[in-house]
Design a protein around this nucleic acid. Structure first.
Length: 285
DNA sequence: CTGTGAGCC
DNA sequence: GGCTCACAG
């Protein structure tokens, strides 16, 4: 009879460990795709143009015709932001299926007039060397016009991290559409290197969730942008490129936020963020 | 690897 | 000036 007294706490401990196992093993990786998989990508090598790759740091749909991701999805909160240095170890992603001939390397971007533009930013993964280094895999890069990448796009990335520091967690997805951009050589390029497609536009959706009240409802702030992959992009700040998820769905054919209840989803997808940014006047256009 | 540059706070 | 996005050699 005496042993039975140990059974209850033992059962309790085992249950807790089993329940926590996914987060112990995978950290935050389960959050990276939490709001949905907009193109129904699958980790199936026959899906060569919509191939799902899940990493602890971010998830993506890879396009082996374009040799860039269709979209990259991740989650950021204050635990992701640390003090680890930018690793700068751009390199081929050898976790692509071995049967696929084409693997993009940094060489494909050399002297192209386009940046190796992070989708999941280095700056969103600074809590460990391993996590930061993972953002430098080439499957997380697109040929991005330098002024788009280093100015307009970076402006939104910096603003996003300021929201995290103010007590929010973010669910972010971004990607590409179309073909043909204008880089530092001041001409339209359709491809660079050994056939890496240059997108015409870049888009991003940020779902802002206060950590102290982490529910997603019709009042949740959504920041959606769509900007040209050109040097002219930087003539406007990021907040002048705000649009609705509805318009992005029409453009891309994707279904965003599909894991959110449909009525909430519809309200959120119609919204265009209008919050003034940094007290600057927003130019209406 | 080091050095350089542009933009922004 | 310091920080962060990069580039070239």
């Amino acid at each position: 009879m005496k042993q039975r007294r140990y059974l209850v706490p033992l059962f309790y401990c085992v249950t807790v460990i089993i329940l926590l196992l996914p987060s112990i093993l995978f950290g935050q990786s389960d959050k990276n795709l939490k709001l949905g998989n907009p193109s129904n990508a699958k980790a199936d090598t026959t899906m060569h143009d919509n191939y799902l790759m899940e990493k602890p740091q971010y998830c993506l749909s890879y396009n082996n015709t374009k040799h860039i991701p269709n979209w990259v999805s991740w989650h950021v909160d204050s635990t992701d932001l640390g003090k680890k240095d930018r690793q700068n170890d751009f390199r081929a992603d050898n976790s692509l299926p071995a049967t696929w001939y084409h693997v993009v390397t940094p060489k494909d971007y050399k002297n192209s007039g386009f940046d190796k533009g992070h989708q999941c930013p280095s700056g969103d993964r600074t809590n460990s060397v391993v996590n930061n280094s993972a953002t430098f895999l080439m499957t997380n890069m697109i040929p991005q016009a330098p002024k788009n990448n280093q100015q307009t796009w970076k402006g939104l990335e910096d603003y996003s991290r300021s929201l995290v520091k103010q007590g929010n967690e973010l669910y972010i997805i971004c990607g590409i559409c179309g073909q043909g951009g204008i880089g530092s050589k001041n001409k339209t390029d359709m491809v660079i290197g050994s056939g890496v497609v240059v997108p015409a536009q870049t888009w991003k959706i940020i779902v802002v969730v206060p950590v102290k009240n982490p529910q997603i409802d019709t009042s949740t702030r959504i920041i959606t942008v769509l900007m040209p992959n050109t040097q002219d992009c930087a003539k406007q700040p990021w907040y002048n490129y705000r649009t609705s998820i509805d318009s992005l769905e029409q453009l891309t054919g994707y279904n965003f936020l599909s894991n959110i209840p449909i009525d909430i989803q519809k309200t959120l997808e119609a919204k265009i963020d209008t919050l003034p940014i940094k007290n600057k006047t927003i130019i209406n256009q």
